[in-house]
Amino acid sequence: MSKKIDNEIIENVCILAKLSLSDEEKEQAREDMQKMLDYVEKLEELDTDGVEPLSHIFGDQNVFREDEVTNGDAREAMLLNAPKAREGQYQVPKTIG
């Protein structure tokens, strides 16, 4: 039996994913996720004992380079994309009470 997705899990996922859903949307999300997990449960049939998880296809070795600055100061250009900016900084809502 695959994992039963309850409201608590959906609440937790919404916190992790930083989403605020209405009760109706939460119910839909719960149904969708349950359906998907029931399906991917298939993986349990597969014997993966002793199999190393494969993340990078060509083996993961680090790629090093000299730590040199090659791009110029792009502050003004970058801030053009900011939803809100002030005095050359990104502006966000108050974070400390």
């Binding site: 930083k18 605020s20 900011a82 939803p83 809502p93």
Partner: peptide
């Protein structure tokens, strides 16, 4: 914060993240 859409109405930072993404 840095680019893209930001919700018009929110209360505080976390609410801003959530509304923006939702």
């Amino acid at each position: 914060v840095k680019y893209g859409y930001r919700s018009d109405s929110y209360e505080g930072l976390h609410d801003m993240y959530k509304k923006t993404r939702t």
